[in-house]
Design a protein around this nucleic acid. Sequence first.
RNA 1: GCCGGCGUAGCUCAGCGGUAGAGCAGGCGAUUCGUAAUCGCCUGGUCAAGGGUUCGAUUCCCUUCGCCGGCUCCA
Length: 630
Amino acid sequence: MGDCQTVLELLKHTDHETQKRALVAKVDGKLVDLKGCVPEGAPVQFLTFDDPEGRAVYRHTAAHVLAQAVKRIYPEAKLGIGPAIEDGFYYDFKVDKPFSPEDLAAIEEEMKRIVKEDLPIERMEVSREEARRIFSQRGEPFKLELISELPEGEPISCYKQGEYVDLCVGPHLPSTSRLKAFKLLSVAGAYWRGDEKNEMLQRIYGTAFETQTQLDGYLFKLEEAKRRDHRRLGRELDLFSMHEEGGPGLVYWHPNGGLIRQLIEDFWRAEHRKRGYDIVFSPHIAKLDLWKTSGHWDWYKENMYSPMKIDEVDYLLKPMNCPFHILMYKTQTRSYRDLPMRWAELGTVYRYERSGVLHGLLRVRGFTQDDAHLFCRPDQLKAEIEGVLDLADYMLKSFGFKEYTLMLSVRDPMNKKKYIGNDQVWEMAENALKEALQAKGLPYVVGEGEAKFYGPAIDITIKDALGRGWQGPTIQVDFNLPERFDLTYMGEDGHLHRPVMIHRTVLGSMERFLGCLIEHYAGAFPVWLSPVQAVVIPVADRHYDYAEELGERLKCAGIRAQVDTRNEKVSFKIRDAEVKKIPYMLVVGDREMNSGSAAVRKRAVGDTGSKPTDEIIGEIKREAALPSSH
RNA sequence: GCCGGCGUAGCUCAGCGGUAGAGCAGGCGAUUCGUAAUCGCCUGGUCAAGGGUUCGAUUCCCUUCGCCGGCUCCA
C-alpha cells in the first residue's frame, strides 16, 4: 500500500454531487472501497446509489451494521452470512431464542446509534492463520467454516468498524454514518448454507435507501403490492376460494373465476389448433405399474399420493400426464410421416407439496397444466423446440406479460443419481435446448440441478405483485421415457427408430397462471377477460325499461352486460362497479332515454360523455376482441 | 417438512380471566336520486378444533388443523 493514490483523493477532483453521493469506485472493472488504492493511470468510475452495484454495497454495509447491533445486544449470537439482495439485505444469526418482532425494533435503534457513532470502516487483509485467530477468538464457528473453504494462497479480507469485525470480500462504505435510511422488515428461519440438513439460523431481513423519502416510497410500494394480492382480489372479485374443510392447496373456481379460466382455455385451444396441435383427454388415475415403468414411482414418489386399492390392484392419482399420452402413442405403429405429433391436454394433476410451501393459487396440490407432448424425429427436435418457444412467447405477450426470464435447467453435476438415463442422452437433450435458445437469440441463465428427473428443460419464470418469481411455462426434452416405454416409429429406411419427446406447458398451470394474471392486472382485467364487461346504470326507476332494453341489446351483441336496478343512487352503483373493476359503466337518465344513447364511464378513467348506443356497442366489441385479432 | 407470527360474524378488525362488539356485506322499510358509499330497523358468533389450569377460559398452558412471512423443494 503505502505510497499509492487513494480513491478519495481522486474523488476530491470531481464535482460536488459526485463527492457527496459516491459510495464506492470501480477501478479497472473491479469494485474498490473509497479508501482503497488506485494504480497509476487506472480508469476510475464512481458509483452511487443509482448504480445496482453501488446500491448493493450500501445495503451490504447496512447488513454489517445490523450484525454489529445484534452482537451488541446478544453477544452470544453467532454470525452466519449477510449479503445484499434485491431490494434490501439480510443477515443470519445463530441465537438461543429466535428474534421477536419487538426485538427488531430494539435492534433497529441500536443500528441508528451505530450510524450516529460515525465508525470508520476499515479493510484489513490478513493471512489464513491470522483470520482463523481473529474468528476463533471472537467465537464465530460459521466464519471459521467459511475460512477453511477459501482458496489457498490468497489474502483474506476482513472489515472492521468499531468493535465489530467481519469476514468479507467487500467493498464497503467508508463509514457507518453514510447510512441514511433503513428499516428491518422481518425475521425468518433459514438453514445454514441453504441446506435443510444443516441447522436453522435466524435471518433478519431489512432494506436501506439513500433517503428517507425513497425508503417511504418503497414501503408504500409494498403496501400497494398487498392490494394486488391475488388471494385478496380472488375473494373481493368472487373469483375462487379454498377451504379448510376441503383440504389445503385445493382450489374452488367460482362463476367469475371460472369464466375467466374458460376464456383463457378457449383462447389456448384455438391457438393450439392453429399451430398444428391436437387436443386429447386422459384419466386421472392409473395402475401403480404404469408409474413404475415411467420411473415416477422411483424418482417422483415424494410428490405422489398414496396408492388406492381398486379390485385388489393399486392405483395412483396422476402427478403428470406424460405416461397417458405415451400409451395413446403406442396404440398404432407410427410412421416417420406421422411425426411430429403434438398432443395437448388441459390435464389436471395432483402432487403432494409440503405444507409450508403452499401459497394461494401460486403453489397448490391439485392443478391443471396446459400440457402437451410432442413426439418427433431427432431431426425435427430443434424446430419443434423453437416452435414451442414461439408459442410460449406469444401466449405470455397476449396476456400482457412482457418480461420474463429464461433458465436452461440442467442436471446437478454432483448428484446424477437423481435422474434417469445416461450421460450421452442427457447431453443430446441439453444441447438441443441450448441450440434452440441460441438460434432464437434469447438470453438465459443456466440452473444446475433444476432439471426434471427425466430430462433437462427451459423454464420460464413470471412474477407476482411482490416481484417473487414463479415458474410458468416449461419446455423439456426427453430421450428417456421413449426408451422406457419402447416407443418407436417406422423410418423411411424401413427400420424402427426411437422418437424424441418434448414435454411442455406454455402457461404453466391454470392456477398459477391465473394467480399471476390477477396480480399482473391488479384485478382490472382487459375487456375480453372481464367477467362483466358493461353495467347499465339507470338514474331513477323511470329509466329501468330503457336500461333493460339497452342491456338486452348489449347481450345480443355478445357483450357480457348487467343492468343495475337496485334501489340505490347513481354514485353508489358507480362505486360498486369500480370496486368490481367492470370496464364499462353506461349511465342512462332522461337525456339518454330521449336520444337513444348512454353516458359512457370507463373504469379508472371516468365519464367520457354520451354516445349513441350503436356506437357504444361497436366500441366495446372492438375492445373485447381476442388478443390474437389485435 | 423446518423457524417465527396469526386464527373473534360472510369480509376487515376491536376486546381479553367474570360466557362478545364496530364498520362493511346480507334482509326489511323509507327515499326516485346524474358519475366512488342516502337514511332507519333487523339478522348474524359452540371467539379454528381438542385437552389442561381455574370457582369460572374467547382470554393462560399444551396438542392438532389452517393461514401469513421466510428457508428448503416445484407448474
